[in-house]
Write a protein that binds this DNA or RNA. Structure first.
Length: 872
RNA sequence: GGGUGUGUAGCUCAGAGGGAGAGCGCUUCCCUCACACGGAAGAGGCCACAGGUUCGAUCCCUGUCACACCCACCA
């Protein structure tokens, strides 16, 4: 242990802790000493980071994610486990490509003008830049992840894993290519998976349009998308619909187009909706596509990749919006438009650019999910993968049990190229882990690779094992797979969590992680989502700059209650910056009073010592249990309340008395040091920087490597009435405040009754110090001019003052105490008079109530007699 | 159309089957020898509403209302 003379006085003399100086220094030291790398220990703990997208710097939601992971990582490391938290970033296909397209767009260029290679070069530069920025941010948050194992989804090794998985699934027949109705984003120019569509409610209109029948008469259909009528190849009605019975089998003539199409009958048509007659456009609507297949209808595409009309005629080249207007106006003037009604419905949008998605038939690659999903359902049902909070399990299972095939090809440049080569001669597909130079069927060298890339989430799905070296059988893979925990947000349960479980089971034959902690969404203080357009985002860089990383971490941990979103008010950070400072100053106090003291066995403890040591034991247990069950907010609250509410507010104050007593001084120093030491350990996962800084001024080694505290049975002591001591002190202060006595004025305290505070403790001094009393004494009788401060069944405590005594005030005081106690007594008595209660309530509850009643009864008697005497 | 979550002090939120808590804000006092990023004393709540279960419910059940969110192929 370092002596007082060795302390860095400049730091400790500062009134305020300066995180901006301390934090980078400690991060560097931890990193240089290799503390973030796993070291053999008692069991292992491993976790992979949800790789942030390189599209942007991190926001406060990421900060929450990082902090929650680091709290657990540091806790597990201190518990002595071989601990690995593996960091990395995601290439984020569509999102990144969009950013680069926009960026070069500002310079007036398109990606086609730039060319494939140049475009990728620019994107890689961006990726490098943002990887560094993100890394710096994660570091500034204090994250103790092992940077020597950092991975990027486009790393060469990870790309190999991607290829191996693709080839393997292809050979098993689980990856296939085919023409299906898919979601097309006309702005991003690529297909999207179902999960990448966000449905939004839109106020729109539904149009009733009259289609003449070839055989005479007409039929009115209802549609929200009149522009697609160019591609209509049927009109459908419900076979049970009496209104349309006669026209089934007849032919409708599409207005403006003149195409003659059949009127067909299909159960799908809802008779109650619209007019009960449906126009069928197999090329541009998923339902119509199904109907089309069933009835063998012609498929006529009328929109191109940019959602412009491609159908020959007057509308060709118009955007879908303009085409709608033009067609409606033409319909109207030709008398086909029967009616327009307001109509709200939900429309799918691209999750990256928010453009309305266009349903379209396209030739794409898919993963067949049904068989892969089955084991992934089972492991969750069997509890091999547990969700926290549990309710997310249902969300996961619902999705898994109704899973659809996963469209994995994307018409992008940025990403993993699909490892498929087409033979120009024989048409064979060569699917290979390594680039082939000839067709594996006919040997032709005229082959070309599929131009598309894979969905970003395809590589993310492999993250828990690809980052550990798979497909090579590395030491890391053997040691750290399966990982123990995944911490992520609910918004990517389908995108990511589900697919990792699927891929882990398929390729590692084991779950990728045992626990999934789903954390909250961080919203603004009004409960709104943080977004660029609202400008209500909170930048973690700024928060760290202003309040320090420790304050930010503690704030987020305190708010991280399971199962609820966090409405974050920036003022919260200030509270916990104050807490950081409180820790700093309390440590300062301990430091000043424990020069040249070493922690060793302590004997001759006082009631204050015994109380704080008992409390510490309880808190150690509570914090540990809370962390084991990922109750971050509970753990953080426990240590916060203990350190500030118990240690600072009471023990340190009482220690001032004990330090002045030569007989008690040394023990008190021991207890101060010990409690501080254990507290620093409990604080460290939440506030690593300040705790390490303080630790370095007291103790050898690094706190990051210290042992996690365990309870000490010898430090459990039975209740000695410390609560009543606190109550007495509060009561005396209350008298002061009630009578407006200045704090400087001296008062005298008199204790009447049978006191059961332990004789080995200077409780008179405790009281006099904490209430600034002239004297604290005992008496047999209530003093004449005494104000009642505290009462229990055996003892009354009075504040005696001759000149300030206020008869009326004392009457009021006593009366209010009596009213309160009487009310309490009445309630307890009513309960205890209820025979049902006595019969059915658990014995200990009854026992407790009886005890309380008798205590209050005695207290009441005391109060009554005091009041009587006063009035004499 | 299904499903989930939430409704507790002015604000942001904890909480447990036995009679309600924190932080911030507010009022009053104090720069007392760790800390004014502090200390002390207070005010402030039919724990959304209505039923039910229970000896007892703010906590469990049912329904209602409000606010979020997720899923689903309503043209």
């Amino acid at each position: 242990m370092k002596g007082g003379s060795g302390l860095r006085a400049t730091l400790f003399l500062d009134k305020f802790y300066l995180p901006q100086e301390s934090e980078p220094k400690w991060y560097k030291r931890w990193e240089e000493n290799g503390f973030f790398a796993p070291h053999p220990g008692n069991g292992k703990f491993s976790m992979v980071i949800p790789p942030p997208n390189i599209t942007n710097v991190l926001h406060v939601g990421h900060a929450l994610n990082i902090v929650l992971q680091d709290v657990i990582t540091r806790y597990q490391r201190m518990k002595g486990k071989e601990t690995l938290w593996l960091p990395g970033e995601d290439h984020a296909g569509i999102a990144t490509q969009n950013i680069i397209v926009k960026k070069i767009g500002l310079e007036g260029k398109t990606k086609e003008e730039l060319g494939y290679n140049e475009f990728l070069k620019i994107t890689w530069e961006w990726a490098q830049e943002y990887k560094e920025k993100i890394k710096d941010q994660i570091k500034s948050m204090g994250a103790s992840c092992d940077w020597s194992r950092e991975r990027f989804t486009l790393d060469e090794k990870l790309s190999k894993a991607v290829r191996k998985v693709f080839v393997s699934l292809y050979k098993k027949g689980l990856i296939y290519k085919g023409k299906y109705m898919i979601n097309w984003c006309p702005s991003c120019g690529t297909v999207l998976s179902n999960e990448e569509i966000e449905y939004e409610n839109e106020h729109s209109e539904i149009y009733h349009i009259r289609y003449p029948l070839q055989e005479g008469g007409d039929v009115v259909i209802a549609t929200t998308r009149p522009e697609t009528m160019l591609g209509d190849t049927a009109v459908a009605v419900n076979p049970k619909d009496e209104r349309y019975k006669d026209i089934i089998g007849k032919h409708a003539i599409i207005p403006l187009v003149g195409r003659v199409v059949p009127v067909i009958a299909d159960d799908y048509v809802d008779m109650t909706f619209g007019t009960g007659a449906l126009k069928v456009t197999p090329a541009h609507d998923p339902n119509d596509f199904e109907i089309g297949k069933k009835h063998n209808l012609e498929v006529i595409e009328v929109l191109d990749d940019k959602a412009r009309i491609s159908f020959e005629g007057p509308y060709k080249g118009l955007s879908r919006e303009k085409a709608r207007k033009a067609i409606l106006s033409d319909l109207k003037s030709a008398g086909y438009l029967v009616k327009v009604e307001k109509y709200d419905h939900s429309v799918g949008h691209c999750y990256r650019c928010h453009t309305p998605v266009e349903p379209k038939i396209s030739d794409q690659w898919f993963v067949s999910m049904k068989s892969l999903a089955e084991p992934a359902i089972q492991v969750v049902k069997d509890g091999k993968v547990k969700f926290h909070p549990e309710r997310w399990e249902k969300v996961y299972l619902n999705w898994m049990e109704d899973i659809h095939d996963w469209c994995i090809s994307r018409q992008l440049w940025w990403g993993h190229r699909i490892p498929v080569w087409y033979c120009d001669d024989c048409g064979h597909l060569t699917v290979s882990e390594t680039d082939p130079d000839k067709c594996e069927a006919c040997g032709s060298t005229h082959i070309h690779q599929d131009p598309d890339v894979l969905d970003t989430w395809f590589s993310s799905a492999l993250w828990p094992f690809s980052t550990l070296g798979w497909p090579e059988e590395t030491e890391d893979l053997k040691k750290f797979y399966p990982t123990d925990l995944l911490v992520t947000g609910f918004d990517i349960i389908f995108f990511w969590v589900a697919r990792m479980i699927i891929m882990g089971l398929e390729f590692m034959d084991d779950v990728p992680f045992h626990d999934v902690y789903i954390h909250q969404l961080v919203r603004d203080k009004f409960g709104r989502k943080m977004s660029k357009s609202l400008g209500n985002g909170i930048d973690p860089n700024e928060v760290i700059q202003k309040y320090g990383a420790d304050a930010m971490r503690m704030t987020l941990a305190m708010l991280a209650a399971q199962g609820r979103d966090i409405n974050l008010d920036e003022r919260a950070f200030e509270s916990y910056r104050h807490f950081v400072n409180k820790i700093w100053n309390a440590s300062h106090f301990v430091e000043m009073n424990t020069t040249n003291v070493k922690i060793q066995n302590v004997q001759g403890l006082t009631m204050a010592d015994r109380w704080i040591l008992s409390r510490l034991n309880v808190v150690i247990n509570n914090v540990t249990n809370a962390l084991e069950s990922y109750d971050y907010n509970i753990a953080a609250h426990e240590i916060y309340d203990f350190f500030w509410g118990d240690f600072c507010d009471w023990y340190i104050e009482l220690s001032k008395v004990q330090l002045e007593d030569p007989k008690l001084r040394e023990n008190t120093q021991q207890v101060l040091l010990y409690v501080l030491q254990q507290s620093l350990k409990l604080l460290h996962p939440f506030m690593p920087f300040v705790s390490e800084e303080i630790w370095s001024n007291f103790f050898d080694g690094f706190l990051i490597n210290a042992n996690w505290p365990v309870e000490r049975p010898e430090f459990y002591f039975q209740d000695e009435g410390f609560d009543f001591l606190m109550e007495a002190i509060r009561g005396i202060r209350n008298v002061r405040s009630d009578l407006d006595l200045p704090p400087s004025s001296k008062i005298n305290v008199v204790i009447v009754g049978k006191l059961d505070w332990p004789k080995d403790s200077p409780f008179e001094l405790y009281i006099s110090k904490l209430v600034n009393a002239e004297s604290v004494g005992t008496a047999r009788m209530k003093p004449k001019k005494g104000m009642t401060a505290a009462v229990n069944p055996n003892v009354e405590i009075f504040v005696v003052m001759d000149e300030h005594f206020d008869f009326n005030a004392e009457i009021v005081r006593l009366n209010s105490k009596i009213v309160k106690a009487a009310e309490e007594f009445r309630k307890l008595d009513a309960r205890l008079s209820n025979e049902e209660f006595l019969k059915k309530a658990s014995p200990d509850v009854v026992e407790k109530a009886k005890n309380e009643r008798s205590e209050i009864e005695k207290t009441l008697k005391r109060l009554d007699s005091t009041l009587r005497k006063l009035k004499e």
